[in-house]
Design a protein around this nucleic acid. Sequence first.
DNA 1: ATGAAAGCGCTAACAC
DNA 2: GTGTTAGCGCTTTCAT
Lengths: 341, 341
Amino acid sequence: MVRMVDVAKQAGVSVKTVSRVLNNEPHVQEAMREKVRAAMDQLGYVPSASARSLRSHRSYTIMLLIHDIRSPFTNTVQFGALQACQELGYHLQLAMVGSETLEDRSKLERYFEKTLRAGKPDGLVLVPPMANHPVVADVMPSLGIATIRIGPNDVPDTDETATVTIDDTLASREMTKHLLSLGHRRIAFLRGKEDQDATQRRFEGYAQALSDAGVARDPSIILPGTFNFESGLASGEKLLAMKEPPTAVFAANDDMAAGVIMAAHRLGVDVPSQLSVAGFDDSEIAERTWPTITTIRQPLEEIGMAAIESLVAAAGGSAQPLRSKTLPFELLIRNSTAPVK
Amino acid sequence: MVRMVDVAKQAGVSVKTVSRVLNNEPHVQEAMREKVRAAMDQLGYVPSASARSLRSHRSYTIMLLIHDIRSPFTNTVQFGALQACQELGYHLQLAMVGSETLEDRSKLERYFEKTLRAGKPDGLVLVPPMANHPVVADVMPSLGIATIRIGPNDVPDTDETATVTIDDTLASREMTKHLLSLGHRRIAFLRGKEDQDATQRRFEGYAQALSDAGVARDPSIILPGTFNFESGLASGEKLLAMKEPPTAVFAANDDMAAGVIMAAHRLGVDVPSQLSVAGFDDSEIAERTWPTITTIRQPLEEIGMAAIESLVAAAGGSAQPLRSKTLPFELLIRNSTAPVK
DNA sequence: ATGAAAGCGCTAACAC
DNA sequence: GTGTTAGCGCTTTCAT
């Protein structure tokens, strides 16, 4: 194994200088820097991560904390995060919190204590439903780890936490306006999980757009949901069985929208001629159903990348505080929405 | 921060004894062991990962090497792997190899050198298409890292590598037999990517079943593919435009099967009454299309868990060699296959 | 601007 | 069965 001393010998300098070059510290002449870099390359030097972090208390590792790893949302964020990590020379480590742990405050505390102290990540990325879970929010500050939350819109920044999101309310309003512009007046709304900020935000956008258009809200076609396919299926069946069914359904995410489409298939209702369906997120499934789903694209890959970039910037000695970012969304009109008949 | 000395002091023993307890080494009296454990709990001791790995050359980290992170296949394996890691006290780290890197031997070598030397994982999990990529297979042995490949059927074990899979050929034969039993004789087959072992294996099962049933193979309805939705869509459109279209399509994975179903929708062909469609993998999409897809369930979560368990067992001092495993599959008959008319 | 020395927290090697 | 000591490879501190 090639050690720092070997590089130092090869370059004819002291270890400390090599260390300075490795860490991009100032106070090294450019010529020296070059010589050291050449020696590193020549010897194929790879610094020992454990030695570095033992001494410096930095791990060059970001931890992505997930709840349901199999969600395409999380998966895409992860993809972006991983790309950014590789570019910046950081490791991406995964950790998962199960439902029971999430419910139980003391369990969660113990879990964090163990996982975070052991891994000592330089930063933490939280995705929904972790991102604005009340118990998580309670426990986090005591850990003293820079954290980016993905998703929530209304959590204030602190020195140690910030958020990366889109403007859910605005996006939802635009989608609702799209449906209104097609002539729909009886538009159902499927809520998501209530412990996720997005549910309320998206509902607000829907409510605002209706109110702007002077359309009264009908509570009987605003249904609870869980963000998953089955919940959309059940709500779809319920709505279509009504005496006066809605002409459009806006689901708070694509999985539920796909469920509504499935319900329509089952009941022989044609989408979009008899029922328009809109989703949110632009998950993979939105392009794989028949018809394909009109939705809001969240730049999830970019969100993942932005999260890592913020954390790494804050971790690097410069000690700039974390900054929240709001990224742009896009209304994607596909085949599941059409003018009302 | 609580250190090992603090625990030792509290328990009234030497550091080495604490270390022995931490690592479950023998030669410690049960009473001492208990005392030490109590002290650890009481002080909230969390061992320093970096110090341990600096000294012991073990990182308690498994690396999952992925190519296309957004595939549901990989995602589910990852889910199982993460569960197993948490149970066994290991960290799961992610690394990604892009397409260009995978094509270029020297790039790949440099990538591995850098990634693996830096992270020093105790084990490596490869998923398709990494798992039996020729260049990867060439480069791996020189790295001296215990590796589990997920997917390939025909790679011999070595001391350092083993595989965890299902019997693709057998599974594919059973699916083909299912279609034959429904009266289909003109069964198309959609191949996957040719650099993946599964493509050939699954084709062989199809070929065997046809041959067992005395049905001649028609090369004009055996089409190449890439395992993705678009490729299934294109093949589906091509098959349905034939003068004598097949009565059934067996796609080498679910994404392609979903594409075929989409093609049928577009062309107004009813599935399954006019065309039966079968997939492979039991991806999430297989239950979200209309109709739902008859497929082969691979126990991907269990596969991910088994991979980690093997690696951890081999990493733990016992130094037992890696062992390959073949897990059971299951034929899931859903709504996309029906008797031929 | 550069270097020498101390020591991060742990385990390997060896003593008892 | 248990303890002592050295040192893993690096960065920090302090000196020059």
